[in-house]
């Protein structure tokens, strides 16, 4: 009978090591809190954080808050997609405009736009519009750049095939350029959605209005430490799930090979 392969050779070993290290870290923190090395009024025991999850979910209406944040993110994403793709197509169609403004769009993408939130508060008021517009502003530049990149990167041979079929400009765009650029456009949409979501949760926290971001602020102001940590963990989980889902969708859209 052959000897079983050691655990370290298993393909699951890295994942086990990673998750095991995380579990060990949590246990060490738990021990240090109970040993009074860590102040429990600064770092609550992880077991208390875990126990706070059901309370936070039930009493703080996490589901409705999640729906509110998700709907804000959806609204921002729809706006970002419409205006971002339109902007990218516009820059592609007018080469001079592209040469004049592409670096500006790239500079805007690198600028700390979220710092404009006090300005948006003045313009739109302390409401969901400010949050959605902040998400929209943050997500717009990446999708414009990625749409442009996708359209410019369309293979010459595909465009020539379209020309040989005497396609009109509209047909050329919808049948050749847009489908060829779609995977890159989707990368931009994913980036835009992530930027929008980060800014939406951030602004919700900063202006104490809306869904999940506000929940963290409220719990922190009540000095409900375990609840604050649980809410932060919940937001991280939501971010990770959204990130993974969009990543899968992007892989699915990407052409094989």
């Amino acid at each position: 009978m052959s000897k079983p392969a050691p655990l370290t050779k298993s393909r699951y070993f890295p994942a086990i090591l990673g998750l095991g290290s995380f579990a060990a870290f949590v246990l060490v923190v738990e021990f240090l809190v109970y040993a009074d090395v860590l102040n429990r009024f600064i770092v609550p025991p992880p077991s208390e954080v875990l126990a706070a999850f059901p309370r936070v979910i039930m009493q703080e209406h996490v589901l409705s808050r999640f729906v509110l944040t998700a709907s804000e993110a959806l609204a921002a994403s729809v706006l970002v997609t419409i205006f971002g793709i339109a902007g990218g197509v516009l820059l592609y169609q007018f080469n001079l405009l592209r040469l004049a403004t592409e670096t500006w769009v790239a500079a805007v993408a690198a600028a700390p736009l979220v710092l404009m939130y006090p300005l948006y508060l003045v313009i739109f008021g302390r409401n969901a519009t400010t949050i959605v517009m902040m998400g929209f502003t943050a997500g717009l530049a990446p999708i414009i750049l990625k749409t442009l990149e996708g359209l410019v990167g369309t293979r010459r041979v595909l465009i020539n095939v379209g020309k040989s079929f005497n396609l009109t400009r509209s047909q050329q765009f919808w049948k050749i350029l847009f489908p060829a650029a779609l995977p890159t456009i989707f990368v931009g949409m994913r980036l835009g959605l992530i930027f929008a979501l980060i800014n939406i949760v951030g602004v919700e926290y900063l202006i104490n209005f809306g869904g999940l971001g506000q929940l963290i602020n409220e719990l922190a102001e009540r000095f409900d430490l375990a609840g604050t940590y649980a809410a932060i963990c919940f937001v991280i989980l939501v971010s990770i799930i959204v990130f993974m889902l969009t990543e899968r969708l992007e892989r699915w859209l990407r052409p094989a090979g």
Binding site: N199, V201, Y205, G213, S239, M244
Partner: peptide, 12 residues
């Protein structure tokens, strides 16, 4: 996966 999370939520 932690990289794209909104970091400001750690401020409290």
């Amino acid at each position: 996966y932690l990289g794209p999370c909104p970091k400001i939520i750690f401020f409290p």
